[in-house]
């Protein structure tokens, strides 16, 4: 049913790289804006603002990035599902991505609210950065495995 050769996405050589660029721009928006909040939680950058102010300023841009990323990603996947299906790094990446998104909208969001201890802020920020960097490593390594 899902043969790579029958997928319209594979009809032009330009579609896959274009989607890849969208994917990169998407995570520059999403991971980039989340990282600004993370660095603020770590006490770096945007210190004239509270963590909550930075987080609420950036939330819509994070969402735009996630939308770009989660549109281009499945389309890239659909170009050759077999390759991804058999790739254990891809599985790992999906697990990390799920964890990162859930973490972002639960524990991470709570840490941006007032009354979070300095230690908790730093731990949450470090976990957030580690999860997202892990997702990016997964994205590159799945092509090398």
């Amino acid at each position: 049913m899902f043969l790579a050769i029958e997928n319209p996405l594979n009809s032009s050589e330009l579609i896959f790289p274009t989607l890849e660029c969208m994917h990169i721009l998407g995570f520059a928006f999403s991971v980039g804006t989340i990282a600004i909040v993370d660095f603020r939680l770590l006490g770096l950058g945007m210190r004239h603002q509270t963590v909550g102010e930075v987080a609420s300023d950036l939330a819509p841009w994070t969402l735009i990035g996630l939308a770009l990323m989660l549109t281009s990603g499945p389309l890239l996947f659909s170009s050759d599902p077999d390759m991804y299906y058999l790739n254990w790094v891809f599985d790992l990446k999906m697990v990390l991505l799920l964890l990162a998104i859930v973490f972002h909208y639960t524990i991470h969001r709570r840490a941006t609210m007032p009354g979070t201890s300095a230690l908790r802020s730093k731990v949450v920020a470090s976990i957030s950065i580690a999860l997202w960097v892990g997702v990016i490593f997964g994205g590159i390594f799945l092509a090398f495995i």
């Binding site: 928006f29 980039g32 960097v133 990016i136």
Partner: peptide, 28 residues
């Protein structure tokens, strides 16, 4: 090494994600 080159490439991309967001926000 089979993993060092992709690890560097991943760090390159991670850097793009971390700094790219700042470039975008400053410009926007």
């Amino acid at each position: 090494s089979w993993y060092v080159y992709p690890a560097i490439m991943s760090s390159h991309l991670a850097g793009i994600a971390l700094a790219g967001g700042m470039v975008l926000m400053v410009d926007l």
